[in-house]
Design a protein around this nucleic acid. Structure first.
Length: 120
DNA sequence: ACGATGACAGTTT
DNA sequence: CAAACTGCCATCG
C-alpha cells in the first residue's frame, strides 16, 4: 500500500515508534535506551529515545510505561529531577524489579527482548 | 530558523 | 578497576 515519502516526518515516525515499542513492554520487565533505539531505528539514537519520552509533555498524554525504560547500567538516570528518579524506581520495584545496593538491577534477568529479536 | 539542552552509550585515559 | 570525554539524534526555547 502507498507509503508517504520517507523524507516526511522522519522524526515524528521515530517518536511514534518509540512510544509504541515502550507501550509493548510487559510489566516487570525493563529495556535500555540503547535497545529501544536499536529496535526502532538506529542504535545511535539512544539519547533521542530519552528525548522522545521527555517530549511526552508536548506529545500525546499517553500513560506510557516510560518507567520501564532505563539506561545501560540497568538503573534509573538522575537528572535535575530527583523526584522522577525516585518515582521511576518505586514503580519498577512495585512491578517486581529488584534493585541492587548500587541502585542498579540485573538487566540479564529483567531486560525484555521482543520475540524475534536477539540480544547479547 | 537557529542554537542550546538532555530521561544515553560507547570508548579511552 | 574507576572516571572522563566524545559522538548522536530528537526535542525545546
Amino acid at each position: 500500500m502507498p507509503r508517504k515519502d520517507s523524507k516526511a516526518s522522519a522524526d515524528a515516525q521515530f517518536r511514534a515508534r518509540v512510544l509504541e515499542l515502550v507501550a509493548q513492554i510487559p510489566r516487570g520487565k525493563v529495556v535500555t535506551y540503547g535497545q529501544v533505539a536499536t529496535m526502532v531505528d538506529s542504535p545511535r539514537s539512544a539519547r533521542a529515545g530519552g528525548g522522545v519520552l521527555s517530549g511526552l509533555k508536548s506529545g500525546p498524554p499517553t500513560e506510557l510505561p516510560w518507567h520501564r525504560v532505563i539506561n545501560s547500567r540497568g538503573g534509573v538516570s538522575a537528572p535535575n529531577e530527583p523526584h522522577r528518579f525516585q518515582v521511576q524506581r518505586a514503580l519498577l520495584e512495585a512491578e517486581g524489579v529488584v534493585f541492587r545496593e548500587n541502585g542498579t538491577c540485573d538487566l540479564k534477568a529483567f531486560r525484555w527482548v521482543a520475540q524475534g529479536w536477539s540480544w547479547e
